[in-house]
């Protein structure tokens, strides 16, 4: 295994320890204990993210008036963006309203937690902990399936999701299991893993370029050229990461809306 070799080398005081999954494991360095439970940095971030999101919206709408102030305007722009461009445009104006709080909470919760990767002094994307992403994906799986079953009944819903339209029944034995697999089983897994993998890989790249740059400078020789270059690249990657953080929050929410809208679709 990569890690073991790298670590052995580091322990011997020679060579560079490449960042790996260990950089994301906080289980042995908890911040504090709470009721016998080790509380790690990502857990604190998760709660902090939720508090920030709610505080922002609560402050923005606490004294909501018809003519908005600056904070209320920002809150409305943020809320309206998710409400209109994700909720209304994807789910449709007929029954998007009851999903808007879910989508808004989801989008901004993800956004702030992803942004933690680039916020100084925190600098860790919460959802690079896969289990946290599993939770949100699992919740969205429950929601979109629940909504579909509530509307069409279990059999009707399974038929809607598994039987493709406009295909001759001869193809059903091939397509029905595939559609079922794709629509019911793969969706939550890809949702969670897409978020996790993007955050994980982005953060890994950043660690690699920053610590690698430092190592090269300490190494001397050609490292005096390559090290700063690596840091410049790290800055460039940070900006790319900002884009990815937003995009992942957006895609996660958008796909949630699409799955809900697909579950609500009229039978064809």
């Amino acid at each position: 295994m990569t890690m073991k070799t790298g670590i052995t080398m580091a322990a011997e005081g020679e060579g560079y320890v490449a960042p790996g999954p260990a950089s994301f494991d906080f289980s042995e360095v908890p911040l504090f204990e709470l009721g016998g439970l080790a509380v790690t940095k990502p857990m604190v971030q998760l709660v902090l993210g939720a508090v920030i999101v709610f505080a922002f919206f609560y402050a923005a709408f606490r004294r909501a008036s018809i003519v908005p102030g600056r904070l209320q305007f920002a809150g409305e722009a943020a809320y309206g963006m998710v409400r209109n461009s994700i909720g209304r445009d994807i789910i449709g104006s007929r029954d998007f309203a009851k999903f808007v709080p879910y989508l808004v909470a989801l989008f901004f919760f993800l956004l702030i937690n992803n942004a933690f990767a680039s916020i100084p002094a925190i600098q860790f994307p919460t959802f690079s902990r896969a289990s946290m992403a599993y939770a949100l994906a699992g919740l969205s799986w429950v929601i979109y399936n629940g909504v579909g079953i509530h509307k069409h009944g279990l059999i009707g819903y399974l038929k809607l999701q598994s039987v493709p339209s406009g295909v001759s029944p001869v193809m059903y034995p091939l397509l029905v299991p595939l559609e079922f697999f794709s629509n019911i089983l793969v969706r939550p897994a890809t949702l969670a893993l897409r978020l996790f993998a993007n955050m994980f890989a982005g953060h890994l790249l950043l660690i690699l370029f920053s610590t690698g740059g430092l190592f090269l400078i300490e190494y001397g020789g050609i490292g005096y050229v390559a090290g700063p270059l690596a840091w410049v690249l790290a800055i460039a990657i940070s900006f790319l990461e900002l884009l990815v953080q937003f995009l992942q929050a957006y895609v996660f929410t958008l796909l949630n809306a699409m799955y809900i809208s697909g579950a609500l679709a009229d039978e064809h």
Binding site: L46, A50, L106, Y134, A135, L139
Partner: peptide, 30 residues
């Protein structure tokens, strides 16, 4: 080191609960 894809029940539960509370607050107040 753990597998990065490994399942950590505490984190899973915390994520669910935190998001659930956030959703409830948004739904109720915002």
């Amino acid at each position: 080191v753990e597998n990065p894809l490994g399942f950590v029940p505490v984190e899973f539960a915390l994520s669910l609960v935190t998001f659930g509370i956030l959703f409830f607050l948004i739904w109720k107040f915002v």
